[in-house]
């Protein structure tokens, strides 16, 4: 696209096109899901100079893939003639797995990663009840496995056989966004994409 005047209609069509191009960029760590389906791309704005502004948000503060993602976006768009590509990182509102698309969740499941099983931590509730969010007192009968009333353990379905008879083996998996589970029916271990 050249740096000539862009009409609103053209800009709208172009924005849709850019979203489509971004939707083809895989997440570097979980390549079956695109960065759009993961909810990392927050805004696309076509500017009058023929370039565009892309706003992205990190999944976790320390996500090591952010630079790779930024580079991939710039490369993909420049290869299609969009320039300049200006990238902005926005941390608020904080990324949440609620922004993951249904397409993305289905792709994760097909890949063998159980998708997030519930809505995320409710920040507003944390704000009004900081202690309640981490309280262990509610379940004295099961001191070894305290449940958190504000955050009941999710029912995670095995991505291989569909059984919900599963248990957590580790709170962290191969990346910060995942936990390790195992299926007690088909006996397969699997990754679970944590609610966040």
């Amino acid at each position: 696209m050249n740096a000539t005047a862009v009409t609103p209609a053209q800009a709208g069509a172009h924005t849709t096109q850019i979203w489509a191009w971004l939707g083809a960029i895989p997440d570097p760590e979980i390549p079956v899901i695109s960065i759009v389906d993961l909810g990392i791309v927050r805004a696309v704005r076509v500017s009058a100079d023929g370039g565009c502004d892309i706003t992205i948000t990190p999944t976790y503060s320390g996500c090591p893939a952010m630079q790779v993602i930024a580079d991939a976006i710039t490369e993909a768009l420049q290869a299609r003639g969009v320039r300049p590509v200006r990238l902005h990182t926005q941390i608020s509102p904080a990324w949440t797995t609620d922004w993951m698309s249904e397409t993305g969740k289905a792709a994760l499941k097909d890949y063998g990663i159980a998708p997030p099983a519930q809505r995320v931590i409710d920040i507003s509730r944390l704000r009004t009840g900081a202690a309640a969010a981490i309280s262990r007192r509610a379940h004295p009968a099961h001191p070894a496995h305290p449940a958190h009333p504000a955050h009941p353990a999710p029912t995670v379905a095995c991505p291989h056989c569909g059984s919900t008879h599963t248990e957590i083996t580790s709170q962290f998996g191969s990346t910060p966004c995942k936990a390790l589970y195992r299926c007690l029916d088909c006996r397969e271990p699997f990754d679970y994409f944590k609610c966040h």
Partner: peptide, 11 residues
């Protein structure tokens, strides 16, 4: 904003 981003991790 930084605190909001960090809170879920810290929890």
């Amino acid at each position: 904003a930084i605190a909001e981003k960090s809170l879920k991790e810290v929890t």
